[in-house]
């Protein structure tokens, strides 16, 4: 009986270390669980700290919301792989601790300097599998960081406004999911194709990237 009690305590403790106690996120996510959102927020802040050459931090960039959107459009198998990646890095420190006191905690529960040390260990590992995991995580975070339009605007890399000429194909294809009857063009709308005039880099930004865009 005592053995069962001890076993239940150990299992309960393990479950608590893995699944309980994540902070409540400030918004609802379609796909991300509370723990995943906490992990992504912590990893984003460690990867893109405030200050430095680009003003926005990982926190400012709202990376968990971006990843949530990305998960929405991925097929189930790919989505599962991505979530397994988050789970792995979040909980690896329960077995391979971060340096300093309290290192045997989930990644998202570590102190900021411990998180940085953990990332460094993953990136510089002599095992390519660990480096691969780190590179995959950093790639996802970086994609989210660059989806934050102020980052692209600061670097001068935000896409410019481009008016697409109406060509023959535009009379054939409706927008994805719509019926052909919804095609807004007729033959009269056909326009001259691009004449090859180079884009002016000081031209207006695409509305999705302009200052004040949602």
């Amino acid at each position: 009986m005592l053995g069962w009690v001890l076993f239940a305590i150990v299992v309960g403790y393990g479950v608590a270390r893995v699944a309980v106690g994540h902070p409540r996120p400030d918004r609802r996510f379609a796909r991300l669980a509370r723990g995943e959102a906490a992990f992504l927020a912590a990893a984003a802040e460690a990867n893109f700290p405030p200050g430095g050459d680009i003003m926005a931090s990982g926190f400012d960039a709202g990376i968990p919301a971006y990843v949530d959107r990305l998960l929405e459009v991925l097929r189930p198998r790919t989505r599962l792989q991505m979530r397994m990646l988050f789970f792995l890095v979040e909980h690896a420190t329960l077995f391979f601790p971060a340096p300093g006191r309290g290192g045997f905690r989930r990644f998202s529960s570590l102190r900021p300097e411990q998180r940085v040390a953990v990332l460094e260990a993953w990136e510089r590992s002599r095992f390519w599998q660990r480096r691969f995991v780190f590179a995959s995580l950093r790639a996802i975070l970086t994609l989210g960081y660059f989806a934050h339009t102020p980052v692209l605007r600061q670097l001068g890399l935000a896409p410019l406004a481009i008016e697409s000429p109406v060509c023959e194909a535009d009379l054939l294809y409706p927008r994805i999911g719509a019926l052909p009857e919804s095609i807004p063009y007729t033959r009269d709308d056909l326009s001259e194709p691009s004449d090859g005039t180079p884009l002016a880099l000081d031209g207006p930004l695409d509305p999705r990237y302009a200052e004040g865009a949602p």
């Binding site: 460690a46 990867n47 893109f48 700290p49 200050g51 430095g52 050459d53 680009i54 940085v116 990332l119 460094e120 990136e123 590179a135 950093r138 790639a139 970086t142 994609l143 960081y145 660059f146 989806a147 980052v151 692209l152 670097l155 890399l157």
Partner: peptide, 20 residues
């Protein structure tokens, strides 16, 4: 840019410097 940036090494300040 996001796709190119994922190939850059580092994290934290050094990564931001390279992105810049």
């Amino acid at each position: 840019p996001a796709v190119l940036a994922v190939r850059l090494p580092g994290y934290g300040e050094s990564l931001k410097r390279r992105l810049a």
